[in-house]
Design a binder for these strands. Structure first.
Lengths: 188, 188
DNA sequence: TGCACATATGTGCATCTGCACATATAGTCT
DNA sequence: AGACTATATGTGCAGATGCACATATGTGCA
């Protein structure tokens, strides 16, 4: 469970409110670990109880008050402890690939639409990541790590975008029509 | 939720028991959607109740009896219905990348170990996938879809393996030592 | 005045998921 | 005879997750 740790790391950069964190997850660290705001608020409450973060109420004029959380030394210790455990292997869970796996049972027109959407998403992120990576000149250990993270994100998006394009071309062309539609039988 | 649909598609290939399905998930479709055996048995019970699969008890000699499940026409309809909904965007949840993002707080020796492990895993799967892809000569629509799935899996593993190697080299070299260890401050 | 919107923080509920544990049959190995 | 392995199917529980909904403040706009 890295939501906890993603929050701790984020708060290590700078103290933040739950609201800030939610936005931060939407923008930067969210590529590695997504989280919704209720999830974040709930987790913050737990972290506070355990003393891994400290909380301070900030009065604001013109806007509702905020509770700003700060990483504690205990939180830092927890991060180090956690980093000594082996990471859980990455596991893909992709709706779309399950459809492709069962292509015979699927509405191909809808799949094509979906694929188009995906491709655009991957291209968007690819260009955003490329721009970000070019700006980064790592001067600290942390920045080095983040650039490496950006780098795998970039490659991930690039491969997906290309794959979508190729797959779309194959689906639009006569590839499908040339194939038998007989469901395959697995050998026992 | 594609576990349901991953099961339906699998049963479309050939009727299977829960035990068979669990193995099948470990081997083939599991690259797109992982599932443990309790999860599969529970899901099967639900699918049966809804009439999306039918069940038949098979008496075996020398081994415990099995319940074999078959995809029904209703199940096929459900798959088509499902395929018309847009797929849920793929979301990465990676422990390891969160650590890299918070590199300053992390035990780098442990991270290196972890990275080595990862690289080996990716290389293993890469060579397995390559071998599988070379054997495949798609003759049906279904096989075409599965080859495309294998193709993205292959690229995914290749990029990860390369990235691991590069990152490991950077961590083993003097890259880190040349960097300041001052935690970066984010601009507000 | 009324309404939508951004900020800010939550609760409630249904499911998904992972992990440990339970149970039963039959073959193999020492 | 006892232990181990493979086959086969589950239960129980805790934690993660997603989604809808609730609530409060202040600004801008028609």
């Amino acid at each position: 469970m890295a939501l906890k740790h993603a929050i701790l790391v984020s708060l290590g950069d700078t103290p933040m409110s739950g609201y800030d964190l939610a936005k931060h997850f939407d923008e930067s660290i969210g590529f590695f670990w997504r989280a919704s705001h209720p999830q974040i608020y709930r987790e913050l409450a737990k972290l506070r109880e355990k003393g891994l973060v400290s909380a301070e109420d900030m009065v604001q004029q013109g806007r509702p008050n905020r509770t700003v959380y700060t990483l504690t030394d205990q939180g830092r210790d927890e991060l180090r402890e956690w980093s000594r455990q082996p990471s859980t292997p990455d596991s893909i869970k992709d709706d779309f690939l399950v459809r492709l796996y069962g292509l015979e049972y699927v509405d191909v027109a809808a799949l094509r639409e979906d694929l188009q959407q995906r491709m655009e998403g991957h291209r968007d992120r690819l260009s955003r990541f490329s721009a970000m990576a070019e700006e980064m000149k790592p001067a600290t250990v942390m920045e080095f790590g983040r650039l490496r993270g950006l780098e795998i994100g970039l490659r991930y998006e690039r491969e997906w975008a290309n794959w979508c394009e190729e797959t779309l071309a194959a689906l639009d062309g006569d590839t499908l029509e040339s194939l038998s539609s007989t469901p395959l039988k697995l050998v026992k």
